[in-house]
Amino acid sequence: MAQVALARDTRDEPNEVALQTRVKAGGTLEDISEMTPRYRDVLVATMSIAADLEIMTLPLDLDAMQFAPCIGDRIAVASALQDEMGHAQVMFRMLEEFGFDAYERVFERDPATFKTFFMLEWNLKDPIDMAMSHLIGDQAGYITTCDLEEHCSFGPYSRSLRKVNFEEQFHVKRGEYSVRHYMQLGPEVRKRVQESLDFWFPLGAEWFGATDDVKSRMDQLHYKIRGSSNDQLRQIWLSRVVPFCEQLGLKVPAHFDGEKGIYVLDFEMPILFNEETGKWDFRKVTWAEKLAQWKRGGSKKVPGLRRIQSELWGHDLW
């Protein structure tokens, strides 16, 4: 076995070098046949996480539909979810070209093995939470996918994100509009908005992964699957979210550092979310502890995915 693997590596070596040179020069790959196994693995891992994330929005939005305050809001949730499912459809269609079976991935796979992110693994409580998920979450997702659209060296994936980003941008705008509206509804509602933001903000900051001093997913940058580092993307996110919230009179644990000319968090990553109190503990922990929490996942992940893999009928419905 070892010999076989070694032989393959040696044979791939010139291809590997050629491919890396090509993508560094801004070239794109258009077909699976042009990929080295390593490139292919990194790309497939990136795309399957993206596909899983899209699927995870379904269980979350089911609740958001139920508690929607009016026809217009139900339309908005349905529309956003229709978009996300469309994106999932496109992603899985692309993964099928790489030998994946979309049915198996979505309907038969153990929910615990889905690669979703901590941010999308919690119950949405009310319309405020829903708006915040757009403002904080979709903004983070949008920044990630914009980077992929702009930089990804796999042409088909980059191009498929045009539709995704076009639609995502609208979700963010709607989140901003809703939050702005809620902030005008008096102190009681404003307090609820602040509480929701307190929960969401660190989730958004975490979305972009470990800080750059911790080397992770370097291959993605290496192969130009994406163009910017975790910290660079987080910076873009901060530069949009922080001034928006401050302008509305919301407090966020981050500020603009005039000296450095960048936005900085008021806490040091990583931190842990305390599931018992439902609040963030801002004391710094180790990345190992953080990874363990991410791995355990949020309370909605497994039940939410299990629900969409199962069916209920008759009296179970109403």
Partner: peptide, 11 residues
């Protein structure tokens, strides 16, 4: 008819 942006637009 199912435009999700009406409220925003009117505002």
């Amino acid at each position: 008819l199912a435009c999700p942006g009406v409220s925003m637009l009117k505002q």
